[in-house]
Design a protein around this nucleic acid. Structure first.
Lengths: 248, 248
DNA sequence: AAGATTGGTTGACGTGGATCAATGGGGGTC
DNA sequence: GACCCCCATTGATCCACGTCAACCAATCTT
């Protein structure tokens, strides 16, 4: 499975260079000089493969590193004592995982791979050290954290004041936009998560998610075939979110 | 209104020294040497008073500074085009505002004072500069951002998988805990926000919030008199959150 | 390829919280 | 101190979504 057997260690460390990675502009968007990029190559100590359904980390695990997704996708969730799960986010290539851990000594949520995946391991101590020296890295890192806060506010808006179909529409448009940013089709994509996980994320039961999908299909807004989605009328989906008749 | 008229400028800048502020351990918790604290005094350029109902900043305002609350309290909210409001948080003394702005050029939410309040203005450029030099400040700042992310996940849990009474119980316990951290009574406090604002935060209508309060009162869990709250049985409130019969 | 397991769809019905509406109480203003 | 406006409470009714349940499709297992 791995090509490591044939590759010497030095080869491997060359592979982990951010400056050589085709995800740089997702991971560390714009504004880094070549000199800065070279410094940053020290950041990623190793890569780590995580198989589908396995945890990258769990709530309670000692916090030591954050992770950049190199391939694949993940969900993060928090669990209540009585077993209730809340999915707090879905992450795809180029996105960061583990920021929750910085606040304390350990992680506060679980990160689970939705498919066989690979992450870049960024030792947190190293990141703080380097970002004291490389201004653009510091700035970039702050932006990443802040963007996560803004994203969370959007989810609160979803959960707190939107109806089931609006939530699903917002979710689909968000996924579409993120696939686009990665060079995939905006109109056609494959969801890696189950209806139940979507439901948990959107604060709905899986049956409600399924029914909303069916209604969208009936109305010609999307084509749905299991996890394969085609956006047929994104304008209508956008409208759905904005002009809600309900004044909640 | 202001005592500025009688105080020379130097007096004023002395007042803004973090090292002299009795909120240091809330704002910049533990682990700073005196030398570090002295460097940090440069951080707060000015103070700003904000009257009840007035905005500290609005969504779309150019982002330049973050704010530490010196006195009073705030809410932050995001608005949808159709007028729907989602309160994303309530902030009290020692807590930070404006972190959402770092991700872009402008703020993404509104911050409104719930009572006459005062904030310390922290120029963001200055903060980045100083935190490159003062390691403990850098670390502290990262923790503050991460803590906000963790808090947001808690709110998602609330909104996504708890029932009305559980949400209110969680809200009350959270308020109680934060009042305690500020040296106030854990059992008796005054809410600065309306039922409608609580409802928006919790994803409920104001009537539902009011009814939940009444039910708690009937059952002897809390004493409610308008905005004045007495926690009578915090153990029961905690139980309510954990052992929910509903397996959502 | 048969069987088992997991995930998705659909229907019938129940309910928690929204909506609509009326009344009451505090706190601010003049 | 009288008025007003905002806020809170409470009741009656409605409905969006949850619950329970049956069935089907896809994928995995051997």
């Amino acid at each position: 499975m791995e090509s490591n057997a044939t590759a010497p260690a030095s080869m491997n460390s060359l592979n982990t260079a951010c400056s050589q990675c085709n995800l740089v502009e997702l991971c560390l968007p714009f504004g880094m000089s070549d000199a800065e990029l070279n410094r940053i190559d020290e950041l990623v100590g190793a890569r780590r493969k995580v198989r589908r359904q396995q945890n990258l980390y769990r709530a309670g695990d000692r916090f030591e590193a954050i992770y950049a997704i190199r391939a694949g996708s993940f969900k993060t969730d928090v669990l209540l004592e009585d077993g209730r799960e809340q999915v707090t986010g879905f992450q795809m290539t180029g996105e960061m995982l583990g920021l929750d851990g910085i606040s304390g000594a350990s992680h506060t949520c679980n990160a689970v791979a939705l498919e066989d995946s690979e992450v870049c391991v960024i030792a947190y101590a190293k990141l703080e050290e380097l970002s004291r020296e490389v201004e653009s890295l510091q700035h970039q890192f702050h932006k990443v954290m802040s963007r996560e806060i803004v994203r969370d506010h959007g989810v609160m808006m979803l959960l707190g004041s939107m109806r089931a179909e609006e939530r699903l529409a917002a979710f689909l448009l968000n996924m579409s936009q993120r696939f686009t940013a990665r060079g995939f089709s905006a109109a056609e994509f494959h969801l890696r998560m189950t209806r139940e996980e979507i439901g948990s994320y959107l604060g709905l039961k899986l049956e409600t998610v399924s029914r909303a999908f069916s209604r969208f299909q009936e109305e010609g807004l999307v084509g749905v075939q299991q996890k394969h989605i085609r956006i047929l009328d994104s304008a209508a989906l956008k409208k759905l979110i904005q002009h809600s008749h309900v004044a909640r």
